[in-house]
């Protein structure tokens, strides 16, 4: 366990050294800011979202979170694509895996490092929440559930992104694979539900991360959602460990 923390710390500091992480963080905050202050309007896709922060609006970050759930499916894989792929590309995997650490510790450490980085980003959205608090009377329960949902969703997204990063030595490929998997679990499943026979549709719909997240962002605590996100996270971490092991076996 101590080694997991040591690895996580190195991973986190690597973020602070890398310009890429700053670019992603800036992108993320820009996205949040735009949604918050100006809203999103893409008539072509029939997307119309009023600014979250406007007079007369409900004082909550909920619409923001709902959009972010999709936006993060792109941002998180960009944040995690480096994690394992870069070790293979630069060859440091060799020094890392010949030190007395297990594959599981390496994966957990990397997950934790990225997760803390993600939490920093989440904390940064607090600026906007502060505005909501100052200018309105938010429902603290809903806000709390919204943030809990974001934390759980983030964990699941990061484990998917980390998994994608174990598959290849090319960061960009890893990023794209991660985005593809997440796009499937967030948007792609809507299409699947429409095409499969009705009796399966319901079970397929149960795999959609957004459905569970929507409960949290509405302010409802749902144990099923909690279990779902934790299971997804654990599952992708598990197969990441397996892939990391098997890549050295070949």
């Amino acid at each position: 366990m101590r080694k997991v923390l040591i690895l996580a710390k190195r991973e986190l500091s690597a973020y602070f050294y890398s310009p890429m992480a700053y670019v992603i963080a800036a992108l993320f905050l820009l996205m949040v800011g735009v949604i918050f202050l100006w809203g999103v309007r893409v008539p072509f896709l029939k997307i119309e979202l009023e600014p979250v922060f406007r007079s007369g609006a409900e004082s909550t970050l909920r619409p923001l979170f709902d959009v972010l759930a999709y936006g993060l499916a792109v941002v998180v894989p960009l944040l995690t694509m480096r994690l394992v792929a870069e070790e293979f590309r630069s060859g440091t995997i060799e020094t890392l895996m010949t030190a007395p650490v297990t594959d599981a510790a390496v994966i957990l450490g990397k997950f934790l490092g990225a997760f803390v980085m993600y939490l920093f980003l989440l904390v940064a959205t607090g600026i906007f929440f502060t505005l909501v608090v100052v200018f309105g009377k938010p429902d603290w329960g809903v806000a709390g559930m919204g943030y809990l949902g974001m934390v759980l969703l983030g964990g699941a997204y990061i484990s998917v992104g980390l998994f994608a990063s174990t598959l290849t030595r090319h960061q960009l490929v890893a990023g794209l694979i991660g985005i593809a998997i997440l796009a499937f679990f967030t948007s792609g499943l809507y299409l699947v539900v429409l095409t499969v026979p009705a009796e399966y549709a319901q079970s397929v719909a149960k795999l959609n991360m957004i459905t569970y997240f929507a409960d949290f962002s509405r302010g409802v605590f749902d144990t099923r959602g909690l279990v779902f996100f934790l299971t997804v996270t654990a599952f992708f971490l598990f197969i990441s460990v397996k892939v990391l092991e098997s890549r050295r076996w070949r």
Partner: peptide, 10 residues
């Protein structure tokens, strides 16, 4: 290892 892989940013 050959080529001495290290973390460049550290």
């Amino acid at each position: 290892p050959e080529n001495v892989p290290l973390y460049p940013e550290m």
